[in-house]
Write a protein that binds this DNA or RNA. Sequence first.
DNA 1: GTCTATACTTAGATAGAC
DNA 2: GTCTATCTAAGTATAGAC
Lengths: 175, 175
Amino acid sequence: MADTKQRIQDVARELFARQGYTGTSMADIAGRLSITPAALYYHYKSKADVLDALLAEPLAAYAELAERASVLTPAELLAAFVDFTARANAVIPVVTGDPAVRDLLDERFPRSPKEMMDAVIAALAGPDPDRPALIRAHAAFAVVKEATAAVLAERGLESADRKEILAAARRVLDA
Amino acid sequence: MADTKQRIQDVARELFARQGYTGTSMADIAGRLSITPAALYYHYKSKADVLDALLAEPLAAYAELAERASVLTPAELLAAFVDFTARANAVIPVVTGDPAVRDLLDERFPRSPKEMMDAVIAALAGPDPDRPALIRAHAAFAVVKEATAAVLAERGLESADRKEILAAARRVLDA
DNA sequence: GTCTATACTTAGATAGAC
DNA sequence: GTCTATCTAAGTATAGAC
């Protein structure tokens, strides 16, 4: 990818994460790069396209995970999801926090994050889940997502952290 | 409170929850009430004031919970937090999802939601926590917050649900 | 308490020069 | 590839009539 496009994505990822997608203007992004907003439109035809470029790879990874979910054991799925969360850490709040982003993604990507999350939850809950099983699945999902984010907020995700998170998630899942 | 003010708050709560604070305009709120935006400014002097009015009660409840956190047992704290989450359900995503709201609250309320969350996490982690204890505290917090929200998304929080959520959170906390 | 009209600002986006 | 200049739309907010 051209150097300028890469730099735009890096700045956009940081600003979207800090201020949200709706809360970040094209002028904000351009200012950080010491160019004018108009110059951005040479590289991307809209603000939504900048977001697309930023999310394409993480969303594809999420889709792959959701597709494999039903053939993995819960332990394998939780482990894979910790790693996904760690890699996509910077963009997850952008997707989950801003309703405008959710609507954009519905138009532009085949499967919504909500659908993919539901697939993971369903796999964690097992076949024909009752209400307690669904609650435990949501809880285990939450443990992985939030605990991983909490660790990454102040340091790298070390091997011991990963094991602790997975152990907690498995305790939640096994009633 | 005057009837119109109450109806403005009800509409604002619903729209902020669905579209986010930044993603909701005064015209959106006014339209739902079949009045003009200008009329809103008779009742509230700014959009931020509408948000303030909406969040004052939940934030005060959260502050009280955070203050009592250190003298409650973890089980009591988790139970109180389930109930708080259930009551504040509609506005929690408004606060946590939009960075602009976080900045507004920093200016307008004495203690930020982040600070209060940290107090709860610290109480759950116990004195002089090591890294695993902090991870477990974050995980238990996440279980209560997300599982309660998941249940409320499709039905009321029944007594059995509450017990299931608390049992899961306690399994996370006790290594 | 609500309206019309409007001021002011910011944002997304385009045209055309360089 | 980037700029200047500009358009259009939307949003917050106010003034003053009713």
